[in-house]
Simulated assay, not measured.
Amino acid sequence: MGRVSSLDVLRGVAILGTFGTNVWIFSSPDGLAAVLGGGGTVESGLRALSNGKFLALLSILFGVGLAIQHASAVRRGARWPGWYLWRSALLWVEGALHFVLVFEFDVLMFYATVAVLCAFVVGRSTRVIRGWMIGAGLLNVAVVGLLTAALYGQDLVGGDSPDTSRWTDQVAFRLEHALTLRFEAVFVLPLGTVLFLAGAQLLRAGALERSVRGDAIRRRLMVWGLGLGVPLNALTAFAGTDWALVDRYLCAPIVAFGLLGAVTALVHRMAEAPGPLRQGITAVGRSALSCYIAQNVLASVLCYQWGLGITGGPLWTITCFAVVSAVVTTGAWLWLRRFPRGPVETVWDVLHRAPQRWLSSRRTRCLPGRSA
Rank of each mutant, 00 (worst) to 15 (best):
I134V: 15
W80T: 12
L97N: 00
V93F: 06
V144Y: 09
V102T: 05
F99P: 01
G131A: 05
L101A: 07
F103Y: 12
V100P: 01
A112Q: 03
F105P: 07
R76E: 11
R76N: 13
R75M: 00
V141W: 14
Y152H: 08
E104Q: 15
L138Q: 05
V107W: 02
R79N: 15
R79M: 14
E104N: 15
F99A: 01
G95A: 03
Y111N: 04
S88Q: 09
L108T: 02
Y152Q: 01
V122Q: 03
A136W: 07
P81G: 08
L85S: 04
R130D: 14
V93H: 00
Y111F: 13
A78M: 14
E104S: 15
R127H: 12
L101G: 04
M133I: 13
F110Q: 05
M109L: 12
M133W: 10
R124W: 05
V143Y: 11
G123R: 06
V114Q: 02
P81E: 09
T113F: 14
S88P: 07
R130E: 14
R75G: 03
V122T: 02
V74N: 14
G135L: 13
G145T: 07
L151R: 00
V74Q: 15
V128M: 10
M133V: 12
W83T: 11
R87M: 06
A149N: 03
F99Y: 11
A89D: 06
G82V: 11
L147R: 10
L90S: 00
R127T: 13
R76K: 13
F99C: 02
G123M: 10
H98C: 02
W132E: 04
D106V: 04
H98P: 02
T148K: 04
V116N: 06
G77S: 10
V74K: 15
I134R: 15
F103R: 02
G82R: 11
V121D: 11
V107Q: 02
L151T: 01
Y152K: 00
R76A: 13
L138N: 06
L139W: 13
L90K: 00
V107D: 01
V144C: 03
L138E: 03
S125N: 03
A119M: 10
V100M: 04
G123C: 10
L97P: 00
L138M: 11
F120Y: 12
R127P: 05
M133P: 08
V102M: 01
F103Q: 03
V143P: 09
E94V: 15
Y111C: 05
A115G: 10
Y84I: 14
S88K: 09
W92R: 03
A119G: 07
F110S: 08
L117E: 12
M133L: 11
G137P: 07
T113D: 02
A112W: 01
I129P: 04
G145F: 10
Y84G: 05
A115L: 13
S88A: 13
R124A: 05
L108D: 01
C118L: 08
R75P: 02
V121P: 09
V114C: 03
Y111R: 05
V100W: 10
R75A: 05
G135F: 10
L85I: 13
V102N: 07
A150G: 00
W92Q: 01
M109T: 13
V128W: 11
L85V: 12
R75W: 00
A78D: 15
